[in-house]
Design a protein around this nucleic acid. Structure first.
Length: 326
DNA sequence: AATCCGTGGCT
DNA sequence: TAGCCAAGGAT
């Protein structure tokens, strides 16, 4: 992947993204709180823990480009790290820059997406790459407002790219961070179904003042949520916040909020769409509709799902008898 | 604000 | 086993 760096020379490296092996003695990433933002019982333990336990992920390395970070953020939307790793590696090898991807038909992005799920993320990533070429000289923007204007980039992803790729100071509020703060600060097992004002205020209040420290704080809290303060069976015995956690102090009270929705799967349009798209993904060119008929028996649902895929731009109808990726 | 959108591993 | 869950976004 080193060869991919040539084209991203203009991008700024985030100072916190250094190899863990270069760890210095002490807590290099935790400056004195009094000089660097909010004083809390959480900062030093989390920053120290991250310094010792952060995973070495491809999009975190010193040599990772902002594009690599951006691709990872798209792929990680609702998809576990373990399944993203191989696809991300292949993706960056094939399309080292936004311009490389933008030069391809969108269907190639959908094909390369494979079985990561939610294939419209691939479509949006392709559209975002196209916009970056057209509007930002092919360079992933560092500015939140420019990022959030890109297809498929919402509040979380914009903040994550600005923070992780460029070391900027942003509240990065994902499901992991929300869970950590709900427990450590709020004293409850799970956050509300949607982000609340109070929740964002807490996260804002905890954000270190200095850019680089804020960026490290953001990724560190997220990592803690991903590895220790997990949704089920949290590893409290290994948590650096054990002594400061409000939820633990309260005796781990059970969740008593509104029921958390679980998506149905078997027999849904989403399953049908997945079957249909898999046929197209695994075929080189257009496929006859009989090939699609074969993978879903319920005709009404099959036609409805296919029409939805066409509406979404994931499938392009041919002469009336065939369908293909865009 | 509630719903829709894929997939697969884990308990 | 059948939920439960995973670095959300768009409408």
């Amino acid at each position: 992947m080193a060869a991919t760096l040539v084209s991203i020379g203009a991008e700024v490296r985030a100072p916190h993204r250094r190899p863990p092996r270069e760890r210095r003695p002490g807590v290099a990433t935790a400056p004195p709180a009094a000089e660097n933002g909010p004083v809390s019982d959480l900062h030093e333990p989390i920053l120290r823990w991250y310094d010792d336990h952060a995973r070495e992920l491809p999009w975190r390395g010193e040599s990772a480009s902002a594009w690599s970070v951006m691709v990872s953020e798209f792929m990680l939307q609702q998809t576990p790290v373990a399944r993203v790793l191989p696809v991300h590696e292949q993706w960056l090898a094939t399309w080292p820059t936004p311009a490389d991807l933008a030069a391809e038909p969108a269907g190639e992005a959908v094909r390369a997406w494979g079985r990561l799920g939610y294939p419209r993320r691939a479509l949006r990533l392709h559209a975002a790459a196209t916009a970056i070429v057209a509007q930002h000289d092919g360079v992933v923007p560092a500015d939140y407002d420019e990022l959030v204007a890109l297809p498929g980039v919402g509040d979380y992803t914009a903040a994550a790219i600005a923070s992780f790729a460029y070391g900027r100071r942003h509240v990065v509020l994902d499901t992991n961070v929300r869970r950590v703060l709900a427990r450590a600060v709020g004293g409850v097992e799970f956050p509300a179904p949607a982000v609340t004002r109070a929740e964002r205020d807490v996260a804002t209040g905890l954000l270190p003042e200095e850019d680089a420290t804020a960026a490290t704080w953001a990724v560190a809290v997220m990592e803690l949520g991903a590895l220790v303060c997990v949704a089920t069976n949290p590893r409290c015995e290994a948590c650096p916040l054990a002594d400061a956690c409000a939820w633990r102090a309260a005796g781990h009270p059970a969740y008593d909020g509104p029921p958390r929705k679980v998506q149905a799967w078997a027999g849904t349009d989403r399953q049908c769409r997945g079957r249909l798209l898999a046929v197209l993904r695994e075929s080189d060119g257009p496929v006859h509709r009989s090939r699609l008929d074969a993978v879903w028996a319920d005709e009404a649902q099959r036609l409805r799902s296919l029409a939805g895929l066409v509406t979404d731009g994931l499938v392009v109808p041919g002469d009336g008898e065939t369908y293909a990726l865009p």
